[in-house]
Amino acid sequence: MTKPLVAIRSVSKHFGEFQALGSVSLDVWPGEVMCLIGASGSGKTTLLRCVNQLTAIDSGGIWLDGELLGVREEGGRLYRLTERQIARQRLKTGMVFQRFNLFPHKTALENITEGPLQVQGRKSDEVRGEAIELLRRVGLAAKADSYPAQLSGGQQQRVAIARALAMKPMLMLFDEPTSALDPELVGEVLAVMKELAQSGMTMMVVTHELGFAREVADRVVYMDQGAIVESGTASDVLGAPREARTKAFLSAVI
């Protein structure tokens, strides 16, 4: 019996008075591609950031690969992990941001090798070879020595995906990866993500690209007001939604 790669249980998060997440529970299975959809403010990005511990949860628990994230339980109490321990836990996930967040003072290749060299302390020539291979995989072998400012948005996002993959994560998190792109550049990023999904990577994707969700996602989760409203296969949730709120959202976006 396989276990879920990510187990989210009763997770809540407030920003001041605003409840971003209200007791959310969810499983992500190994190899699964999950698309999180919903209006802005629905909590889907917050949920993703909680899995990567860029946002600390108020209550509940998230397990990644069987390991409780951010805290450790001992004698019925929870103790916060040190920053170093949290950084180590983050190595299991790769994150792709809406606004790419490439390091502007480093070339595409240096962006990719930074983590393996500096954080994982791996050997330079080995890492370099892998980074070039990753650039080839995202179709940017010729851009290794370009700085981010010399790349288009779509190219930057593909480098960002390669940067995350270089850490050899078991889970990839995508936070609206195409929302900051010009329409004609969306396709190239989605193509890379699709290839990644087909290679068996476990992915959580916050997106507004319903076409991508329909085509690639094993499961679509619709969120509203910090809660999961509906969850199921893409054809069920997008094609035949049961909940009124899902129907309203879908008719508003399409």
């Binding site: 950084a87 180590r88 490439l102 930074e114 500096q118 954080v119 995350a164």
Partner: peptide, 20 residues
Amino acid sequence: GQYEAAQAIGMGRLRALRRI
């Protein structure tokens, strides 16, 4: 976002400050 990207590739606070 630069700090978050550094964290996301497993950097601690001081390393992110120094490198990024």
